[in-house]
């Protein structure tokens, strides 16, 4: 499965495409289960990039774990959570609070 991720232009914060917009957490990112859905996400990413909403747009591998979306690669897991050495920073900080 694939999800669409990028960094927001204005502040660089990592975002994921979910429910027709860019969410600050990965949990409910839109999943592409087949090639057609991947193409659809890719087109959304390309348009958002062209519209100067986001930069560094990528389709990445993801799974669903306990009902929430989780990236597969460690790099993307860290992007989705924050630095593993500073749990008070990044997305994980808000989750802990």
């Amino acid at each position: 499965m694939k999800i669409l991720t990028a960094n927001r232009l204005t502040d660089g914060i990592a975002v994921w495409y979910a429910d027709g917009g860019w969410a600050e957490t990965v949990d409910h990112a839109d999943l592409a289960h087949d090639k057609a859905a991947e193409d659809r996400l890719e087109a959304i990413g390309a348009k958002a990039y062209a519209d100067n909403e986001v930069v560094d747009v990528n389709l990445i591998d993801a799974d669903v774990v306990d009902g929430v979306v989780e990236p597969v690669r460690l790099r993307e897991k860290i992007r989705a959570a924050g630095p593993t050495i500073r749990e008070d920073l990044g997305k994980q900080a808000a989750r802990a609070a």
């Binding site: 960094n7 502040d11 660089g12 914060i13 990592a14 930069v55 560094d56 790099r75 860290i78 992007r79 924050g82 630095p83 920073l89 990044g90």
Partner: peptide
């Protein structure tokens, strides 16, 4: 290239 000339990178979480 303009931002790089001024030390601005894009990293995992932010600039």
């Amino acid at each position: 290239p303009l931002r790089l000339m001024n030390g601005v990178y894009l990293q995992l979480h932010a600039y």
